[in-house]
Simulated scan of single mutants.
Amino acid sequence: MAENADPRGLDAQGFIAREGSLGRVPHAFRPVVAAARDRLLDTFGARLHSAYLYGSIPRGTVRVGRSDLDLLVALHQEPTETDRSEARAIDKTLDKDFPQIDGGGTLLVSRAQALSDLETYDLGWFIACLCTPLLGEDLAEYLPRYRPDSLLARETNGDLALFLPRWRDRIAATADTDEARRPLVRFMSRHLVRTAFTLVMPRWNGWTSDLREMAEVFAEYYPSRAEQLRTAAILGHEPTGDPAVLRSYVDDLGPWLAVEYARVHGVKAPRP
């Protein structure tokens, strides 16, 4: 967050301040970031337009041995299956070589996609506000500034209803063990907390990436669902493998949130 940002993540003009910086990367994770930079360059070379860090590492809130490494890479052309396979290989190698991190993932996009009109208030906002430049030309220079308004809420998380059937399929296909379910609980918990927060974000008029703060902000406006969100925020950091949690997400909290989101902000513009 910029030094002139207020406690609600806004700059002096009321726009969402870009969070994170390379200067906030803790010392223990600097070798990880350096290795990621080198491997992205070695792998993608001239195909690479730019690369970014996001998540807890550039925010300085990372936990040794418990947080993952999140990267976004913009290529000059649309990513191919070969590109995606190579990105997965980078993720796997970094996770193996550095015990500081617990997994990671590299998102691949094209420059054209990131700067498209359709993605201005979703992927574009994500890059401009939540990503820290690591390599190449910063795409944020070509993107607008963003306020925490209903348009941003709709275009970032107004598609939850589309995810719920897929989530049910993933749950059904997951092995019946705590270990297998734990990553799903973590992922879905985080997704639901962030969606619940952006539901109320315009009324709160601010931005945060802290899951527990998100849950507390939501609780101000929907007290009847407050405990569910507080629990989900905890599970986003410390997931269990309880199947009842997953069922509650796809049978209760998720459907309610999808309907309320559409009522308040409308539905996200459809993607191809």
Results as ranks from 00 to 15, higher is better:
residue 2 A to V: 10
residue 4 N to G: 05
residue 4 N to D: 11
residue 5 A to I: 07
residue 5 A to W: 10
residue 6 D to K: 10
residue 7 P to S: 11
residue 8 R to I: 09
residue 8 R to G: 08
residue 8 R to W: 00
residue 11 D to R: 00
residue 15 F to P: 07
residue 15 F to M: 08
residue 17 A to K: 01
residue 19 E to L: 12
residue 19 E to C: 13
residue 20 G to Y: 10
residue 20 G to E: 02
residue 22 L to N: 03
residue 24 R to E: 02
residue 24 R to D: 02
residue 25 V to E: 12
residue 26 P to T: 05
residue 31 P to Q: 05
residue 34 A to S: 01
residue 35 A to G: 07
residue 36 A to E: 04
residue 40 L to K: 05
residue 41 L to T: 03
residue 41 L to A: 03
residue 46 A to L: 01
residue 49 H to G: 00
residue 51 A to W: 08
residue 51 A to S: 07
residue 52 Y to P: 07
residue 53 L to C: 08
residue 56 S to R: 06
residue 58 P to T: 00
residue 68 D to M: 12
residue 68 D to G: 14
residue 69 L to C: 07
residue 69 L to Y: 02
residue 70 D to G: 11
residue 71 L to W: 07
residue 72 L to F: 14
residue 76 H to S: 08
residue 78 E to G: 07
residue 84 R to P: 09
residue 84 R to S: 14
residue 91 D to G: 11
residue 92 K to S: 12
residue 92 K to I: 04
residue 92 K to L: 15
residue 98 F to M: 05
residue 99 P to Y: 15
residue 101 I to E: 12
residue 102 D to R: 15
residue 106 T to K: 04
residue 107 L to F: 13
residue 109 V to P: 01
residue 110 S to A: 15
residue 110 S to D: 15
residue 111 R to N: 01
residue 114 A to T: 03
residue 115 L to A: 14
residue 115 L to E: 14
residue 117 D to F: 08
residue 118 L to A: 15
residue 118 L to C: 14
residue 118 L to N: 15
residue 122 D to M: 06
residue 123 L to M: 15
residue 125 W to A: 13
residue 127 I to T: 06
residue 128 A to G: 07
residue 132 T to K: 00
residue 133 P to V: 02
residue 137 E to R: 00
residue 139 L to W: 13
residue 140 A to Q: 12
residue 142 Y to A: 15
residue 142 Y to T: 12
residue 144 P to M: 09
residue 144 P to F: 10
residue 145 R to A: 08
residue 146 Y to K: 10
residue 147 R to G: 11
residue 148 P to W: 05
residue 149 D to H: 00
residue 149 D to T: 08
residue 151 L to A: 09
residue 152 L to A: 11
residue 157 N to D: 12
residue 161 A to T: 14
residue 163 F to M: 12
residue 165 P to I: 03
residue 165 P to L: 05
residue 167 W to R: 07
residue 167 W to N: 05
residue 170 R to P: 02
residue 173 A to Q: 10
residue 174 T to G: 00
residue 176 D to I: 02
residue 180 A to V: 05
residue 181 R to I: 03
residue 186 R to V: 14
residue 187 F to S: 12
residue 188 M to G: 07
residue 190 R to M: 13
residue 192 L to W: 03
residue 192 L to R: 01
residue 196 A to T: 05
residue 200 V to F: 08
residue 203 R to G: 02
residue 203 R to Q: 06
residue 205 N to G: 00
residue 206 G to T: 06
residue 208 T to G: 04
residue 208 T to E: 12
residue 208 T to K: 12
residue 209 S to I: 10
residue 210 D to F: 01
residue 212 R to V: 14
residue 215 A to Y: 14
residue 218 F to K: 03
residue 218 F to M: 05
residue 223 P to I: 04
residue 225 R to A: 06
residue 225 R to P: 02
residue 225 R to K: 12
residue 226 A to W: 13
residue 229 L to I: 06
residue 229 L to Y: 09
residue 229 L to S: 06
residue 231 T to R: 14
residue 231 T to L: 15
residue 235 L to G: 00
residue 236 G to R: 07
residue 236 G to K: 10
residue 238 E to D: 13
residue 239 P to T: 08
residue 240 T to K: 00
residue 243 P to E: 01
residue 245 V to A: 11
residue 246 L to Q: 02
residue 251 D to W: 01
residue 253 L to M: 04
residue 256 W to Y: 05
residue 257 L to N: 12
residue 259 V to M: 08
residue 259 V to D: 14
residue 262 A to R: 15
residue 265 H to Y: 10
residue 265 H to N: 09
residue 267 V to F: 15
residue 270 P to G: 13
residue 271 R to E: 13
